[in-house]
């Protein structure tokens, strides 16, 4: 990939052998003012980063918190005190607040090689998901779904009138005015998922055509105004 001494941010996708750099996964090399990164094209797992806001599903209820599946190689732990904003009394039934199968939006608070990710609920955009629909895409395609300068995401939002949140672990939360729009977005997402050339071709245009055919031009413009 490259040869020479570089100061580059650590990445799991770059491998260094003396002064030669190799990409360790199939990906696109992104060169930006003197440094470079590799954007992977494949990968079914999300690598947690401290500060990321992720959407996960509650897997297990423990004594003082929940185990949450955030599609990482490791299970994440959400302490109940973080969600409830108070210490938990022993023997309290946490099922009342979050049950197995519930979705939760939280921030990755702590994560490194030795500890599993610990989540925290902080800020207005986190907390239990109470409405809408949750769908998923492979984590390596999440950034593609957003698109350059959010172009693809903005297209989806303006064409369907849905409220869309895409999380870096590949989870998508949407609130749509009707099920027709919801189905259209689901179709568009699976279109992006199977798209082998999502890194090259003009995906935004393709998705625009798909949604238009799914909803009909008239419907699209009216929901865009709404």
């Amino acid at each position: 990939m490259a040869e020479g001494d570089f100061e580059i941010p650590w990445s799991p996708y770059i491998y260094r052998e003396s002064n030669r750099y190799y990409a360790s996964v199939v990906g696109v090399v992104d060169v930006k003012n003197g440094t470079f990164t590799v954007i992977p094209l494949k990968g079914s797992k999300y690598w947690p980063r401290v500060g990321d806001t992720v959407l996960g599903m509650v897997e297990e209820i423990e004594l003082y918190g929940w185990t949450v599946d955030i599609r990482a190689p490791y299970p994440a732990y959400l302490p109940a005190s973080s969600l409830l904003n108070r210490p938990v009394t022993a023997g309290e039934d946490l099922r009342r607040y979050l049950d197995v199968g519930d979705y939760i939006v939280a921030k990755v608070e702590v994560f490194d090689r030795t500890t599993n990710p610990i989540l925290a609920v902080r800020g207005s955009d986190t907390g239990k998901v109470t409405d809408g629909t949750v769908v998923s895409i492979s984590p390596s395609k999440a950034s593609r779904l957003i698109g350059r300068n959010r172009s693809l995401l903005n297209t989806l939002v303006s064409m369907t009138g849905c409220h869309l949140m895409v999380y870096p672990n590949g989870m998508i939360h949407m609130r749509c005015p009707s099920s027709a729009q919801e189905e259209a977005i689901k179709g568009a997402i699976s279109l992006i998922e199977i798209e082998q050339e999502s890194h090259i071709s003009d995906l935004t245009e393709k998705v625009r055509r798909f949604i238009a055919s799914k909803l009909g031009e008239a419907n699209v413009s009216s929901s865009a105004e709404a």
């Binding site: 996708y13 491998y15 990968g43 390596s140």
Partner: peptide, 10 residues
């Protein structure tokens, strides 16, 4: 493994 996107040396 390459298809799964798992980091490898080669």
């Amino acid at each position: 493994l390459a298809d799964a996107g798992i980091p490898m040396r080669d």
